[in-house]
Design a binder for these strands. Structure first.
Length: 487
RNA sequence: GGCGGCAUAGCCAAGUGGUAAGGCAGAGGUCUGCAAAACCUCCACCCCCAGUUCGAGUCUGGGUGCCGCCUCCA
């Protein structure tokens, strides 16, 4: 498999450091607000990568942090007059709830910055000891000039950035030796949460927590480190500077970054205020899989535009895919599948599919190519449309063109591959027609037949519409026969 | 100002040298009292200009437009 590595700006063959085992770290959210569609894209992308690695037979250790101490959390705490750790607990739970709904698998570990403060202090001390960091007025800063390859990830050079940076004025500037030096430790101000350190009471800076948590959970060097493109600089650049200065080993072999979700061509972001939260969207009635499909229809590095039209398109596309995914449950009985009552029927984990079919090979080729999910999805759509067509043939003509066994293999292939992309169809709801018994329906169909016989088209149409409203579709067939199906 | 990305049908989106995947939307047909459902069929020469090549969305150079990062941000 090949992945685009931001570090080299090339698509490269992926091989883990330790054969068969992938160590992955995904930069998590700062928990002071609800997650928006941009976050959804990010975590859907890496969840999909993780699922694909598992499908490829790797063992994956997936770690994702929560930044639970930070200026914005403190500000929010003051604004709402709520303890900072209540804020963070609230939004951690909200984050997990949102991601669960999007079928994003839980990380193996969710370390929090505040749980590793002693290790952070130790790490900072070692950077000071090695000459990469200095204390200044209760803060500790990283000296970027001491790290010769600073800028290697983002493709920048210190002297080029100085011009842009020189215009900035902030209170930290006077404490820094170089404008791009960044805080490893911040002295506490009155009323702020604080921890002990050799440099006085304070709290960790943003970047250092990731360097420490990666090491604590996964070791000195890992295989894949992920985040949004906005983390390339300065966050990931700084992580590299910290970890590699302290440990003298590459922090991560691969650096992966996803493209943004845009609104009207502009990046969706909290600072611009142009965001839709995941729960806003789901509460308006969308199946979470619509959002997942919307995200996967573009390759993860490309920007995507979040528009009503795009979501409507994804909604319709999902309806098609979902029909295909439910093929077995819907038609299994008619096709003579004998195990439909088994608990494992329809469960992708229990399915054994041929792994050298054209569909699987094309799916893999696409995913191997830097997670080309649009092409992978095209394979799923071809399967789903064929199944939909055959299902309709069965419903309308009573028979299919392909053999039941062939259809079963196609259906299972679809279900298994969709599961690799995290696309799962919930069982069809039955509530809509619960109040209407077959006999009632038959009676109405008969009434309509008589109305039609009398050429009372208005009455006939009225009955048809009435049934339609209850989820019953009528199918007029040659010879005056009318069949009906629950849709 | 520095660095980087993108430009393919009405919309979305693959395709990186050999005559354009897939999704959404749409059109025509069969059927039909009209519909619905279903089935069949159709729907792009790839931002502009100049090159390289037998042959270029696909490579090179130039242009135009849009976006991102350089400050917290997935």
């Amino acid at each position: 498999m090949h992945l685009f590595n931001t570090l080299t700006r090339h698509v490269e063959p992926f091989e883990p450091l330790e054969p068969g085992v992938v160590k992955m770290y995904a930069c998590g959210v700062t928990v002071y607000d609800y997650s928006h569609v941009g976050h959804a894209r990010n975590y859907i992308a890496w969840d999909t990568l993780r699922r694909y690695l598992l499908w490829r037979g790797y063992r994956v250790k997936y770690v994702q942090n929560f930044t639970d101490i930070d200026d914005k959390i403190i500000r929010r705490s003051h604004q709402e007059n709520v303890p900072w750790n209540v804020i963070t607990e609230t939004y951690i739970q909200a984050y997990l709830d949102d991601m669960d709904r999007l079928n994003i698998r839980r990380a193996d570990v969710y370390p929090k910055a505040t749980e590793v403060v002693p290790q952070i202090v130790q790490f900072i001390q070692s950077l000071i000891d090695r000459g990469y960091a200095y204390e200044s007025g209760g803060d500790v800063y990283y000296a970027v000039e001491k790290f010769p390859t600073y800028g290697k990830l983002s493709g920048r050079k210190l002297d080029q950035m100085e011009a842009g940076a020189s215009g900035r004025v902030d209170e930290e500037a006077v404490k820094k030796h170089h404008p791009l030096d960044f805080a490893l430790w911040k002295a506490a101000k009155p009323g702020e949460p604080e921890w002990e350190s050799p440099w006085g009471q304070g709290r960790p800076g943003w970047h250092i927590e990731c360097s420490v948590m990666v090491r604590e959970e996964l070791g000195d060097s890992i295989d894949i480190h992920t985040g949004g493109q906005d983390l390339i600089f300065p966050h990931h650049e700084n992580e590299i500077a910290q970890s590699e200065a302290a440990l003298a080993k590459p922090l991560s072999r691969f650096w992966l970054h996803n493209g943004f979700v845009n609104i009207s061509g502009e990046k969706m972001s909290k600072s611009l205020g142009n965001f839709t939260t995941i729960r806003q969207m789901l509460e308006s009635g969308f199946d979470p899989m619509v959002l997942r499909l919307f995200v996967l229809q573009a390759q993860y590095r490309k920007p995507i535009d979040f528009t009503d039209e795009a979501i409507a398109s994804a909604q319709n596309a999902w309806d098609t895919l979902r029909d295909g995914l439910r093929f077995g449950q819907k038609h299994g009985k008619a096709l003579g599948y004998t195990d439909i009552e088994n608990a494992s029927f329809g469960d992708p984990a229990a399915m054994r599919i041929s792994t050298d079919s054209d569909a699987v090979l094309r799916f893999q080729a696409a995913m191997d190519d830097d997670l080309n999910t649009p092409v992978a999805l095209s394979v799923l759509f071809e399967l789903a449309k064929e199944l939909q067509k055959e299902g309709n043939r069965l419903t309308h003509d009573g028979k299919t063109l392909a053999e039941p066994g062939t259809l079963r293999e196609q259906w299972q292939t679809l279900v298994v591959l969709a599961e690799v992309l995290g696309l799962t169809a919930q069982p069809a709801a039955e509530a809509a027609t619960a109040g209407l018994r077959d006999a009632d329906i038959e009676a109405l169909v008969q009434q309509r037949a008589e109305a039609k016989k009398a050429k009372n088209w208005a009455e006939g149409d009225r009955i048809r519409d009435e049934l339609k409203a209850q989820g019953i579709t009528l199918i007029d067939k040659p010879g005056g026969i009318t069949e009906w199906i629950r849709s």
